[in-house]
């Protein structure tokens, strides 16, 4: 796909900021495309992982932070393990998601759904210390206004005793809440 550069803002400091955050030499990528060739989700995406890297190299901050690829990345690390020069691309995807969230960049609809899921998951961990699958489904459905696809399969899950109904709770939840708070303070979100 041709990428139109005319009229775009170039942020020369963006590349350095990403490189520092993910501790990867993004500028060394020579666009061989091997990462994209092995990426399981690329087929359903408009933008390939190596294009995201190129956007970072060029300082196209808006494009790099608002595309669906960074949110639909499954975190499988196929790209990372196959890059001939050892760039941890999966880690860069983490960095871009974190930057997009931190800067309040408007998310594509897929991104918003994934982000809502991440929030619901971490809310359960913060509250109970463990993931409650039932609480997760419930809070995801409320916050996204969309029934979790898995719920369609829920009768099966319940029938087979696949989903724990009672959330397990750890003892030291106070400490855990302090841990979450401290990290938020440090990372400034």
């Amino acid at each position: 796909m041709k990428h139109q550069l005319a009229g775009k803002a170039f942020h020369s400091e963006f590349l350095a900021a990403v490189e520092k955050h993910c501790e990867q030499e993004i500028s060394a990528c020579y666009q061989c495309g091997k990462c994209s060739a092995g990426c399981p989700v690329f087929e359903d995406m408009a933008i390939a992982p190596n294009r995201v890297i190129r956007m970072v190299q060029l300082g196209l901050k808006e494009d790099a932070l608002k595309n669906e690829m960074i949110w639909c990345c499954a975190g499988c690390s196929a790209c990372t393990c196959r890059c001939p020069i050892g760039i941890d691309l999966a880690r860069m995807m983490d960095t871009l998601r974190q930057m997009a969230t931190h800067d309040g960049v408007p998310m594509p609809p897929d991104g918003a759904r994934v982000f809502t899921f991440f929030q619901a998951f971490l809310d359960s961990v913060r509250e109970f210390g463990r993931l409650s699958e039932v609480a997760l489904m419930g809070s995801y459905n409320i916050n996204s206004g969309r029934i979790m696809t898995n719920v369609v399969k829920a009768p099966w899950f319940l029938l087979k005793g696949k989903v724990g109904i009672i959330p397990h709770k750890i003892k030291r939840t106070d400490r855990l809440k302090r841990v979450f708070r401290r990290i938020e303070e440090i990372e400034g979100s």
């Binding site: 955050h21 975190g75 995807m93 983490d94 998601r97 974190q98 969230t101 899921f117 991440f118 929030q119 998951f121 971490l122 961990v125 210390g129 463990r130 993931l131 750890i170 003892k171 030291r172 855990l176 979450f180 990290i183 440090i186 990372e187 979100s189």
Partner: peptide, 18 residues
């Protein structure tokens, strides 16, 4: 004792330290 969730993908996708 009293183990907590590893955070799975949601933790590393949204935070470096968590």
């Amino acid at each position: 004792d009293d183990w907590v969730c590893c955070g799975a993908t949601p933790a590393h996708a949204t935070s470096h330290l968590l």
